[in-house]
């Protein structure tokens, strides 16, 4: 179990770094979504099921949709 936890924490830090360093907004949003999913798994390992459900729904679902709509609005303004 501790190996799985360490692996998940490593991937968490990796995905957060990836979300910061990429220039394109779309890739950053995808990595933020991956970040939320890994964080959900970590919450489940720590037995916080309520927080895990909230994180999965808000972080991976709602945030991605709202960021996507914001991105499409920005691109339309540029062209």
């Amino acid at each position: 179990m501790i190996i799985l936890e360490c692996m998940l924490l490593f991937f968490l830090v990796m995905s957060a770094t990836m979300a910061v360093i990429f220039e394109k907004e779309l890739i950053s949003i995808i990595f933020l979504s991956i970040f939320s999913i890994i964080l959900t798994a970590i919450y489940l390992i720590y037995r916080a099921a309520d927080v895990a459900l909230a994180e999965a729904v808000i972080g991976a679902g709602l945030n991605t949709a709202i960021f996507m709509s914001a991105i499409s609005q920005i691109r339309k303004g540029k062209s």
């Binding site: 099921a49 309520d50 895990a52 459900l53 909230a54 729904v57 808000i58 679902g61 709602l62």
Partner: peptide, 9 residues
């Protein structure tokens, strides 16, 4: 697990 907030989202 769950509740009003999560189900509402």
């Amino acid at each position: 697990p769950g509740g009003g907030f999560q189900g509402g989202v």
